[in-house]
Amino acid sequence: MSLLHWAAAGAAGYAIWHAVRRKEEEHAPAAFAEGEDTSKNFARVRSAGTEGMRSDPKRWDKIDQASDESFPASDPPANY
């Protein structure tokens, strides 16, 4: 095989790998931050706070933080 054939095979392999990887990323929950492990998370609830979000909110204060930390519980936050 010539070098050109090896290069074409490598490019095709990379394209397939990239397509499979991209398809896996599309199935990740939208609320989870990049790199947050969801495999052991039975309830599929993300970590509280802005560091657990995929995109940063424009405004985030203490009330937003307390509300986010209380989810999915039905009790209000302690500092409400």
Score class of each variant (00 low, 15 high):
residue 46 R to C: 04
residue 59 R to N: 10
residue 55 S to D: 11
residue 16 I to F: 11
residue 57 P to E: 05
residue 52 G to N: 00
residue 52 G to P: 01
residue 76 P to Y: 00
residue 41 N to E: 11
residue 19 A to T: 05
residue 17 W to E: 04
residue 46 R to P: 02
residue 19 A to F: 05
residue 76 P to C: 06
residue 37 D to V: 09
residue 15 A to G: 08
residue 21 R to W: 08
residue 24 E to F: 13
residue 23 K to L: 11
residue 4 L to T: 07
residue 19 A to H: 04
residue 34 E to F: 08
residue 66 A to L: 14
residue 29 P to W: 01
residue 3 L to M: 07
residue 24 E to M: 11
residue 39 S to V: 11
residue 32 F to Y: 15
residue 67 S to G: 14
residue 52 G to M: 05
residue 65 Q to N: 10
residue 64 D to G: 01
residue 28 A to D: 14
residue 24 E to L: 14
residue 56 D to T: 13
residue 62 K to P: 06
residue 56 D to E: 12
residue 39 S to K: 13
residue 79 N to Q: 05
residue 56 D to G: 09
residue 72 P to C: 02
residue 6 W to F: 12
residue 18 H to N: 10
residue 3 L to G: 04
residue 44 R to E: 12
residue 52 G to F: 01
residue 31 A to D: 11
residue 53 M to G: 02
residue 15 A to P: 00
residue 13 G to T: 09
residue 64 D to Y: 00
residue 14 Y to D: 05
residue 6 W to V: 10
residue 49 G to H: 02
residue 78 A to K: 08
residue 37 D to P: 02
residue 17 W to K: 03
residue 74 S to T: 08
residue 61 D to L: 05
residue 69 E to T: 00
residue 64 D to P: 05
residue 44 R to D: 12
residue 11 A to I: 13
residue 20 V to P: 01
residue 77 P to M: 00
residue 55 S to R: 11
residue 79 N to T: 11
residue 65 Q to Y: 04
residue 24 E to T: 09
residue 38 T to G: 14
residue 62 K to C: 06
residue 56 D to Q: 13
residue 17 W to P: 05
residue 26 E to Y: 05
residue 54 R to K: 13
residue 53 M to V: 05
residue 16 I to E: 03
residue 8 A to G: 02
residue 29 P to C: 04
residue 45 V to F: 10
residue 70 S to G: 00
residue 67 S to E: 13
residue 1 M to P: 06
residue 63 I to E: 14
residue 8 A to M: 08
residue 59 R to D: 10
residue 23 K to M: 10
residue 71 F to Y: 15
residue 26 E to K: 11
residue 28 A to R: 15
residue 76 P to R: 05
residue 14 Y to S: 10
